[in-house]
Amino acid sequence: MSAGLTAPVAMTARTSRLSAVIREMLSRPSGCIGLFLVIAHVALALFSPFFAPFDFKAMNANAILAPPDSTHWLGTDQLGRDILTRTIMGGRQAILVTAIATPLAVAWGGLLGIYLGLAGGRLDDILMRVVDAFLALPWILKMLLMIVTFGTGVGVLVPTLAFFYGIPVIRIARAATQNIVARDFVLAARARGHSRVSIMRRELFGNVLDALMVEGAMRWSWMLLAFTSLSFLGFGVSPPTPDWGLMIADSRNFMAIAPWPAFAPVIALSSLIIGINLTADALAKALGIDRAQAAVH
């Protein structure tokens, strides 16, 4: 009746969670395509200055709005600049700014959301109404207000985007936290007398991280669109720096006679955003069946 030690059970070795998730993502077409697009765009942003066929500033008076040919593969714009060069370099500013702003947005929105989800009470009530009010305003209005007040440039755009895009993250993190807080292991930690910070760090953070990662990927694509829209309106990157939003805005006037200058940046932007969305989708699915929830076989 008195038992000895329970016999050890056959189990898989502990593998790194990250590699398991990536493997799971690559097992789906959406994950393969999405990761390929994102990695390709990031690589272009990093290395395009080294292999761009032309100088992005070089104007050619002999080839204004020239259609694609063997010299200018994607044609030239209204100033005779090479569109291929400007397209592969046009994402650099957008990707740089958003790649810094996204983690910042997820970090502050996530932390505040987790705290509010755990603490609840009056502070939670008040802050969530403020969040609602913020989300009710059109984003473009808020962004323009900041830019008009503080000017443009990376130093302004990064904190502005990080601030405004962190606000919806609060909601997501708070909702995810409330699901976890209701579970017995958080109750057990409270009953043991752990402090709030300790509960956030030990019990909540790891369980909310999945939702935050997926949310971060989604926020990134929204931020890219916002950044490009600002450039399109003339509040983002200043000429002659190549930028997709700016390129689309410039080529707008010549659409009827020369449509190609608009095509390349539009395709570049869409492929990046589609890539990010597919990655986020695959990530969500891969995290959904992660090791912590999978049975041993």
């Binding site: 579970r183 409270r190 030990r202 790891g206 369980n207």
Partner: peptide, 27 residues
């Protein structure tokens, strides 16, 4: 819990119904 002394907290322990719920799945 917040008002109790550490000693009191330690001496009273709780075991829950469902271990799937009471053990953090990530730990």
């Amino acid at each position: 819990v917040e008002q109790r002394r550490p000693e009191q907290l330690r001496e009273i322990q709780l075991i829950f119904q469902n271990p799937d719920e009471s053990l953090n799945p990530r730990h």
